[in-house]
Nucleic acid binder design. Structure first.
Lengths: 235, 235
DNA sequence: CACTCCTTGTTGAAATTTCAACATACAAAA
DNA sequence: TTTTGTATGTTGAAATTTCAACAAGGAGTG
């Protein structure tokens, strides 16, 4: 039981809610924990999008099936992670994905309507959770926006450079580590791993970057600024 | 003055707030309207991300400048549209973009902190606006997710088919109209217009779709289901 | 050490996309 | 009517990506 509270406490949905108040909050929200066997659907495509879920133990996968019947994996969820919040908050009727237990898993489900409508005694945790939810969804938004900015570039080289520059900006240094290995980076950039390796090699040979494993360093990367300054109206 | 209220009333941020209460809400939020000349920056890159903006008149553009100094246009905002909400709600310090008036424009700016912290007399509009904001941000999330699903496909053909199938699903029919002309569709799919036209022609000749202007019809598209059923564990 | 597994880099051919250019159709304007 | 402009389709060459296959270098294991 303790371990549940540890996970909740680390979960951004419960940020700034005092540990001793979590239990009360859960009661107020009528949160319940359900168990799922490996392969079992936690949420099936077409089911009402009414709940926010939190992985407590085990591992879940979000899948989507296209018109051809091809199933593709969208995300992999580990304990502490949230799912379904965008669907529930956006007010759509049915979830367009299936969430499945990749191994035996326990999941906490919270009715989003309950969360969103203030309870009768207007408890303050409630309000805090709504703000947390807003923060979480907005942050995810920025992550998506950034991914789109990167992957909208047409060539592997441009995608890679855009990604590296964003990382440098975010980490505030020209030398930094990325959270992906080569295959994962290729997946993120939506390009072929071999082509990515080739492009990294090319940039390295041109002296624009240093790269080994997850550590990158940008060299002759930054001094090209202002190239297009004064180009107003052209956009 | 009346026209401002018309725009606000149509703005999703003020959904379910009675027209006669809007003025009071604005006062409570200390909302103010500012004017900007053409080319002037409404929000400059690096400025604190504290406000949500609503375009009242004119037109704004969201720009981003990369490390090379290349400026690229991210969005085009017309009256009634919101901007800055993801940055403000996600709690990041500085906006990573510049919002600029593309023509003379009036903008309403609302301090997100004021919006998010309940006011002293806990007015109910307040709460409704937070929920509206949550709904808006979550809906944008789904739009991004969908765009990523489409553009993550590797070929023009796959991108196009994925997009058309999603449209068909959303509109609930196999014959439907899309909101883009060819150039705009190519931009959305992140492909070349000429290549897109070629691919549409190919699909048409193969009898899989009918297409003229913005009207599409999917024909031998749907019966390929279940091809990969039973492929568990392979994902 | 030998062996396996895994990550990364490399390579060349095939497939695909981009790019530039032009053809056609249609609508609006003169 | 002619003219102009815009949207769309088409084409071929150049550039790029994908694909399949293999090589090299660790890390871990027996």
């Amino acid at each position: 039981m303790k371990k549940y509270f540890d996970i909740l406490h680390a979960c951004p949905l419960f940020r700034d809610i005092a540990p001793q108040e979590v239990a009360k909050t859960l009661e107020c929200l009528n949160a319940r924990i359900s168990s799922f066997d490996k392969g079992e659907a936690v949420l099936s495509e077409g089911a009402p999008a009414s709940h926010v879920g939190i992985v407590m133990t085990g591992r879940l996968q979000i899948e989507q099936t296209d018109f051809f019947g091809n199933r593709s994996m969208i995300a992999n969820l580990i304990p502490g992670e949230l799912f379904g919040e965008s669907f529930a908050c956006a007010g759509i009727k049915e979830v367009p994905v299936t969430v499945r237990a990749a191994e035996h898993a326990e999941v906490m489900l919270i009715d989003c309507l309950k969360l969103v409508r203030s309870c009768s005694d207007a408890c303050p945790f409630h309000q805090q959770m709504i703000l947390n939810l807003l923060q979480i969804v907005a942050a995810k938004n920025l992550i998506f926006q950034q991914k789109i900015e990167v992957t909208s570039k047409r060539t592997t080289r441009e995608k890679l450079m855009t990604y590296l520059m964003l990382q440098a900006r975010q980490q505030g240094r020209l030398e930094f580590e990325i959270p992906y290995d080569r295959q994962e980076l290729a997946d993120y950039l939506e390009v072929e791993r071999s082509g990515l390796s080739a492009e990294i090699g090319k940039l390295r040979r041109q002296g624009m970057i240093e790269a080994e494993h997850r550590r990158f360093k940008l060299c002759n990367f930054v001094n090209h600024r202002e190239r297009s300054s004064g180009c107003f109206g052209g956009l």
